[in-house]
Design a protein around this nucleic acid. Structure first.
Lengths: 235, 235
DNA sequence: ACAGGCGAAACTTTATACAATCTTCGCCCA
DNA sequence: TGGGCGAAGATTGTATAAAGTTTCGCCTGT
């Protein structure tokens, strides 16, 4: 197949200087090293990555488009603080898109994909075992992204990347303190259903998985006021 | 309600210099004044809008994220040329998202919204009557965007904006030469179903509307080669 | 006559300098 | 003592200049 006959110039995610910045900041946000509301100064980041403000600015604009950074005019960039309403929208969109994606993933299943799935599941299990919360969060998102890649639909994949990034932020903001280690088993079950080419089961499992994640969140609107107050007091 | 207690700084679409550029280029692309594959030089655009390359670059990056412009490293920005595969993905995504959106729109229907819908339909009809193809294309997209706004889901709205922009490009690329003036009636029917709060009908009408649009396209993969050849010969 | 390589021009990319805006802190006055 | 005004500092927005890459024409050698 001459699928790669064109050099495919839209591979902007690797070996790019602004991509390195973007991914670094993204990782910092998703791993909870940067809390929502934190100011992201251009000089500050530029000095860290040894880049000029031009590149930092580009990266921040991309992150703003992904929804995990807010840019306020003449004020700068801040880590986004999704509201409970945002959270509900994100999970509704994920239910819609991911239930469709698993269908396509089942259609596209192949030995190579099954290998990748299994490999990922072991990675995830290992991270969970050694209590590496940061890796767990990242890998949990990667599982969903992997299924989107299986589906072969680049548009869904792009949408889902945004939704996953926002979800991580949401989970970190609104997760109830008692966090049962829940996700891994679900992922394994979903993978099994995909391997068995059982569309209905895969769909149902994906939906209940997403529902359970959302159910673990505390999404009462008053929480927003509470948070804003905490913000004032903390600052 | 103090809903607007914050100045809502994320209103980046108005009275902004880069937004003016972005919207100008977008309009030029969607109204078929800029053909797919056309190079968008930074100097060129900057001179037209009286802006420096810095702002032009920002606008082009946003358009690239929306999928209607491709940026190739060290080569510049070009009007995107969606493949038939892209086209199918776009319409599948639209069916999925818009059938969900109409549901929510029915839930959110109110006299004010009905007014806006009616007003839009008359605008659309007038443009159609006076044979203003450019306005028709734009207004046709606006109808779908309006419903997304009714639904109140900002995430779906954002996704749909991207999909609509790409759709316009796709329609211009792959539409069969004989173009029956089809869309307006469909829009009116959908609006009626929404007004009657008939979810099932609204959903079904939206789906058949999108299906019909896609059916009017000529999406055979060989067309891509043909186009590429034409590109070489024409250049 | 034609293939291959050298070189200049045009463009994008990156960095830096300048201008505009906002924030903050101190001071003055009620 | 509390609040408002104002200037200094810091930060972002914009423009311009330097650096690197690609592309195209031309020239030379076979």
């Amino acid at each position: 197949m001459a699928a790669k006959s064109r050099p495919k110039p839209d591979a902007p995610d690797v070996s790019d200087r602004v991509s390195r910045i973007r991914e670094g900041v993204t990782a910092a946000i998703l791993e909870h090293r940067l809390l929502p509301g934190t100011k992201l100064g251009e000089d500050e980041i530029g000095e860290i990555y040894g880049a000029s403000r031009t590149l930092v600015r580009t990266a921040l604009q991309q992150l703003a488009h992904e929804g995990i950074v807010n840019i306020e005019k003449n004020r700068g960039a801040f880590v986004a603080r999704p509201t409970p309403a945002d959270a509900r929208e994100v999970f509704e969109a994920r239910r819609l898109i991911e239930s469709t994606i698993v269908d396509h993933a089942v259609d596209a299943v192949s030995p190579a994909w099954i290998d990748r799935l299994q490999q990922h599941l072991t990675e995830e299990r290992e991270a969970e075992l050694r209590g590496d919360a940061r890796a767990s969060v990242r890998l949990s998102g990667d599982f969903h992204r992997l299924i989107a890649e299986m589906s072969g639909h680049s548009i869904y994949l792009g949408f889902l990347k945004e939704l996953i990034a926002r979800s991580s932020l949401i989970i970190l903001l609104y997760r109830r303190h008692d966090t049962p280690a829940c996700g891994t088993d679900h992922h394994a079950e979903i993978a099994t259903a995909i391997r068995k080419r059982d569309k209905q089961a895969a769909r149902a499992l994906m939906l209940s998985h997403l529902n359970e994640i959302e159910a673990e969140l505390f999404l009462k609107d008053p929480a927003a006021d509470e948070l804003r107050l905490a913000d004032v007091l903390g600052a």
